[in-house]
Design a protein around this nucleic acid. Sequence first.
DNA 1: TGTCCACTGGAAGGGAGGGCTT
DNA 2: AAGCCCTCCCTTCCAGTGGACA
Length: 416
Amino acid sequence: MRETGNIFEKHMRKVSLFKGNREALYPDYLPENLPHRESEIDKLAEILVTALKGEKPSNILIYGKTGTGKTAVVRYVGRELMHAREVYARRNVEYIYINCETVDTPYSVLQNLGNYFIEEWDEKIPFTGWPLDKVFTTVKEKIDDWNGIVIVVLDEVDKLVAKSGDDILYQLLLLDSEMKNSRLSVIGISNELKFTDLLDPRVKSRLTQEKLIFPPYNAYQLEDILEERVKIAVKDGVVSQEVISTCAAIAAREHGDARRAIELLRISVEMAEREGAERVEERHVYLAKNKIEMDCVSEAIRTLPLHSKIILLAVSLSDEAGRSSLTTGEIYQIYKNLSRRIGIQPLTQRRISDLISEMDMLGLINAKVKSFGRYGRTKVVELGLPVIEVKKILLEDEFLMDLNNVKLSSQKKLFF
DNA sequence: TGTCCACTGGAAGGGAGGGCTT
DNA sequence: AAGCCCTCCCTTCCAGTGGACA
């Protein structure tokens, strides 16, 4: 070994605090046990057992906030169902999981579903191109020929409905009623309790034959979940009871989100590991909490479309110049100037208004509609985060780099 | 009390970009 | 090659509106 040492050497000397399988601390890990979800699992199994008997199970709607174990339970029961199928099933049973966060149009849902039943690559339904009714007919024929019970899970179905309306749900119900041999059940998973208001009453009543509500976990339940995962993923004695309690308490405060609790714990361990510490301390948990929050925000900013970034930059610049709140019209003026500077054709004010609302939903800015009486009615926009951080991330964009030195003067009207 | 501002946010539709069909 | 279809991003048009002011 050379005197200066290899660049990896000091890191190699650090001892890993994880055991071999750290996947247990990642969100898509499906554990052997799901603590405090026994009754939900049982209820779901009770409904789905019908499929093993060769009949169509009721359609189900599952509600619950993020991180309440909806997806885990549904996947868990699905896995068990597939095992049981080998032993008990009297006819074909298939369990298909679709996440509507990515598969978010009627076309793509049908396409995903259909391709499950199409073996040959050259017969698969392309991801775009076919008329919708042709996709529908193809899917119907394929599933009907296959002859069995299909259970389709639509995770985050509220997103799908918000985006594309309830057409797709109607089509799935129609699919079921038009088939001669096969049957199809839908399990919808939603974060939103009131999303069924958007549904056509007929769709609503047929989709919600059974309802399951997942309550948030409390701090004690989160502790149990974390303990389970720690046993699998982390070396003995590295994570103390206090650390687990802290993680659980923080997550419980944020609506009992188990996913967050697990992530928080994982990052805490990583923080300790990177420091070369032998055990995780509470301070690592708080470091991890900050890191997660910051990562989340900067990722959101980085992946913004260019025009949204320009708007955000406009808000940041004016914040820097001492004007912390702006109206849509003012933002639009600054936005237009900035766009011209970097040689980009500005969008219309109508479109900007939508982009502002989008960023409001992301929590990057705060926008409120306010009336100034005689002086009109408009959104009042403020930056939701520290300017320095936001600006730094924005200026990483290759189109915005040149605006590094741009300043707004702090006059009543904003000039360059 | 009515007026009127500066928008908001819905609706409709254009057109580019993906792809298939004939 | 021409003619479709679906989705996404955007524009155009416009009725609607909360509340200060005359």
